[in-house]
């Protein structure tokens, strides 16, 4: 084992890590937005909306993420061509972001739904009694309380996504893992680089988990 080759490779690995973090961040942000919309739909009295959202969630929770990533890699350019009528070049990065946010939205939806349902019914009644519309009740009263309660779960899910971003190797995107692996292969020291990558993933994820646990304790009081 000779780890000396890792030091000069660090700038390249850092670039990979930036891609990983960008994927995660955009996936989480988009996923939470879409997931919240889905959750509100699932809880609405409109049967059609509720069923649409339920179908979406059940579908995406029943197929592997790797499939979604490869599928969107081919589907996104195709769909854009169908919509705009011209060839729109879409990089692997964009198609992966779309894949992550659509996939994660299904999971975030269930977290947000549980969060909304944990708020006492009387809060909605009180907000309505003050003359707020359903949208105002949700936006001003229910969701702010729900998000506070579910922050630990949302972060936990984000940590899982941090690890799952490594699946983008399937479409050739240079995330952290792919950067480490390819560099190891070129230099001829694949094991050292993979061990190092593992250590980095573990350190980041585990430290983040510990932080979430501390946060959970603080929020629980």
């Amino acid at each position: 084992m000779d780890f000396s080759a890792i030091l000069p490779a660090l700038p390249g690995l850092w670039e990979g890590m930036l891609t990983t973090l960008q994927l995660m961040l955009l996936g989480v942000l988009g996923g939470v937005l879409l997931g919240t919309l889905l959750a509100v739909m699932r809880l609405s009295h409109n049967r059609l909306l509720a069923n649409l959202a339920a179908t979406y969630v059940n579908y995406f929770r029943s197929i592997p993420l790797l499939l979604v990533i490869t599928w969107f890699y081919f589907a996104v350019p195709f769909l854009l061509r169908a919509i705009t009528g011209e060839d729109t070049p879409v990089g692997a990065f964009t198609s992966c972001v779309v894949a992550f946010l659509m996939f994660e939205a299904a999971y975030f939806c269930e977290i947000v739904r549980a969060g909304i349902q944990s708020i006492p019914k009387g809060q909605m009644g009180a907000a309505q009694a003050l003359g707020m519309t359903h949208g105002q009740c949700m936006r001003l009263i229910i969701l702010p309380q729900a998000f506070r309660k579910m922050t630990p779960l949302l972060l936990q899910q984000s940590i899982i996504l941090f690890q799952d971003t490594s699946l983008v190797y399937a479409v050739g995107l240079m995330d952290f893992l792919n950067a480490a692996r390819s560099r190891g292969d070129i230099i001829g020291q694949p094991h050292e680089f993979l061990i190092f990558a593992g250590l980095v993933y573990f350190t980041v994820s585990f430290a983040a988990s510990l932080l979430v646990k501390r946060l959970q304790k603080r929020l629980a009081v």
Binding site: P120, G122, Q123, G125, A126, A127, Q128, A129, L130, G131, M132, T133, I141, P144, Q145, R148
Partner: peptide
């Protein structure tokens, strides 16, 4: 909603907004 804005209501469990 408009009608409710003109009718005040007080609940058994207060229902102040805790956040």
């Amino acid at each position: 909603p408009k009608l409710r804005s003109r009718v005040g209501m007080v609940f058994q469990h207060f229902e102040l907004f805790p956040h």
